[in-house]
C-alpha cells in the first residue's frame, strides 16, 4: 500500500516531464449537423490514468472511438505514441493496435465464442504462442478480474457486470501498455468495482501501464484517476468544461462540475435549463 501512494505521488509530480502517450489537438466530430466533439485538446502521459467524465450522451464513447482509430474525425489530430492515427491506414494502424487494449461500453464479446475463446482470440490471432500457454494465460487473466473457472460459458450465459470483466480480461490479453476502458465498473457491485479499480491501479502504478477510463462512478474516478477531464453537455456540448488532477477537480468551484460530482438532480446541467424549450415542445410552437 505504501508503495502505491508513493508512486502515485511521484506520478503526479513529474507528469509534465514524462513521455506523452496520447495527444489530442482540436478534435472535432460531427454526426449530421450535430457537433458532438468541438475542439477537444488534451495530453495523456505514460503511467497516467486519465478519467473522462460527462453526462450520458455527451460524447465520451465517441471520443474513445476516435482515440483507438476506429472512426475518423471531421478535423483535428490524434497522436498515439507520436503517430497521427487520423492519417493512418488500417494496415498501418495494426502494429499500434497490438499495443493497446480496449474495453467497449457494451463489452463487445463475440457471442459465438466461449469466454475463454474470447480472451484467447487476440493471442491466437496475433502471436505464435502455443495453445497450451494461451490456455494458462486465459486462466491468469480470468483470475485478474475475479472470474476463475468461467472460461467455458458463453457470453449469453453471464450477467452484464461479468461481461464487462471478461471484456476487460480480453483487453488485457496481450499485456497492453495502454488501456482504454468505457465505463469498466458500470453494472458491477461495490466489491467488484473495488477489484477492478485495484487492478487498474496495480497495472498503472506498479507496471507503468497508461489508462484512459470513461466513468460516471465518482468514487472510482477519484480512486484511480491521476488526471481528469469533464465534457460538457447542452450548451457546452463538445467542450472540456473542467480538467485537472483529482485534487484540483475536488477544489474546482465550477457549479456544473460540483453538480456532477455530488450527483444532484438540480443545478446548472440540463433539465431546468431546457424547461422553456420543453413547454414550447410540449404545447407546440403554433
Amino acid at each position: 500500500m505504501t508503495l502505491d501512494s508513493d508512486s502515485s505521488k511521484s506520478a503526479l509530480h513529474d507528469r509534465e516531464s514524462k513521455d506523452v502517450v496520447i495527444e489530442v489537438k482540436d478534435l472535432v466530430v460531427r454526426f449530421g449537423d450535430r457537433t458532438i466533439l468541438d475542439g477537444i485538446n488534451f495530453k495523456v502521459h505514460k503511467g497516467d490514468t486519465m478519467i473522462i467524465m460527462g453526462g450520458s450522451g455527451c460524447g465520451k464513447s465517441t471520443l474513445l472511438r476516435q482515440l483507438i482509430g476506429s472512426t475518423v474525425p471531421d478535423s483535428g489530430e490524434i497522436r498515439l505514441y507520436g503517430f497521427d492515427i487520423t492519417r493512418m491506414s488500417e494496415k498501418e494502424l495494426d502494429p499500434l493496435r497490438k499495443r493497446f487494449g480496449m474495453l467497449f461500453q457494451s463489452g463487445a464479446l463475440l457471442q459465438s465464442l466461449t469466454i475463454g475463446e474470447n480472451i484467447s482470440l487476440p493471442l491466437l490471432e496475433n502471436s505464435k504462442v502455443d495453445p497450451a500457454i494461451v490456455d494458462l494465460i486465459v486462466k491468469m487473466k480470468l483470475e485478474l478480474v475475479g472470474l476463475t473457472g468461467f472460461e467455458n460459458l458463453k457470453p449469453a450465459e453471464i450477467s452484464g457486470g461479468m461481461k464487462k470483466r471478461v471484456a476487460l480480461a480480453r483487453a488485457l490479453a496481450l499485456d497492453p501498455d495502454l488501456l482504454f476502458s468505457d465505463e469498466p465498473t458500470a453494472g458491477l457491485d461495490p466489491v467488484m468495482t473495488a477489484v477492478v479499480d485495484k487492478l487498474t491501479c496495480d497495472l498503472t502504478r506498479k507496471l507503468g501501464m497508461t489508462a484512459v477510463v470513461v466513468t460516471h462512478d465518482m468514487t472510482s474516478a477519484f480512486r484511480i484517476g491521476t488526471y481528469m477531464i469533464m465534457l460538457g453537455s447542452g450548451p457546452h456540448q463538445g467542450k472540456i468544461i473542467a480538467e485537472g488532477t483529482p485534487e484540483e477537480i475536488k477544489k474546482n468551484p465550477d457549479p456544473m462540475l460540483r453538480q456532477f460530482i455530488n450527483g444532484e438532480a438540480d443545478g446548472p446541467i440540463p433539465l431546468k435549463l431546457s424547461q422553456d424549450d420543453y413547454f414550447k415542445h410540449l404545447l407546440g410552437s403554433g
Partner: peptide, 11 residues
C-alpha cells in the same frame, strides 16, 4: 516479463 513468460513458468 509478460503473461506468456509467466505462463511458461507456470507450465
Amino acid at each position: 516479463i509478460d503473461s506468456s513468460g509467466l505462463a511458461t513458468f507456470v507450465e
